[in-house]
Write a protein that binds this DNA or RNA. Structure first.
Lengths: 117, 117
DNA sequence: CGATAATGATACGGACCCGTAACGATCGGG
DNA sequence: CCCGATCGTTACGGGTCCGTATCATTATCG
């Protein structure tokens, strides 16, 4: 079920969605933060700092700081793992789920509006 | 020629491309910077600081700083407009064009790999 | 126990970015 | 000519992020 898209379409889609994100005054997330957020919301729990760091190929402090920021924005929450208290389990929030959902709708909508070529 | 894509597909595509960008050690551009870069490379020249600021709905210093950063990365160049020396014309570079092209191919490739649902 | 390993958080110096405000340079009309 | 308008840049104070190194806490295993 491959999704066929031409390079020029891909670029216009990419640009338009980013323009929308900037325009809507959403949090100006970096590529890293976006990757972290979507990983948390798309991959199966549980998510740990170490696991996310491995998946992204970055150091642990990067994840910790990103979680700090997203926590302030209400996009994720952290909780101690009671079975292994060294671990921290990253949890989703309603606000985060809504933000992800809004992003999905944005991409779908802008893709639908793409002209040929 | 609408491009049909489901929300879950959109999210997986978005996540995977961002993961690739992080992994490939590309510059960790923010949403704003990405929007600026793609606007320069997709919209017809000439591009000015003021024009970009209007299109993105941000202040001029934001554009100036983004151009500083992308200039260091070799993605864009600036030149004085000789007809109206108040203006600065933003120009594309070979490196920038290659980076944009690579992004396009990345999106196309990851879209092709998307499963259904 | 005690030693070792593993996890996530923190400290540090440096870099970048933000928004507001001010600035120098340039144009253009009276 | 000069004065206002316009352009892009810079200054400022505050915030975030980076990578490296180190830390406290907790688990594991001899």
């Amino acid at each position: 079920m491959a999704l066929e898209i031409r390079p020029s379409q891909a670029l216009r889609l990419w640009r338009q969605v980013h323009l929308d994100l900037v325009h809507d005054g959403q949090a100006d997330l970096s590529a890293r933060q976006t990757a972290i957020l979507l990983t948390i919301y798309l991959e199966l729990p549980p998510h740990t700092v170490r696991g996310l760091a491995q998946q992204l190929g970055v150091t642990k402090p990067v994840i910790t700081r990103a979680l700090d920021t997203m926590g302030k924005l209400g996009l994720v929450t952290r909780r101690r793992d009671e079975f292994d208290r060294r671990n921290v389990v990253i949890q989703r929030t309603v606000a985060g789920a809504l933000a992800v959902e809004r992003l999905a709708d944005l991409v779908v909508q802008r893709a639908r509006e793409l002209g040929p070529g």
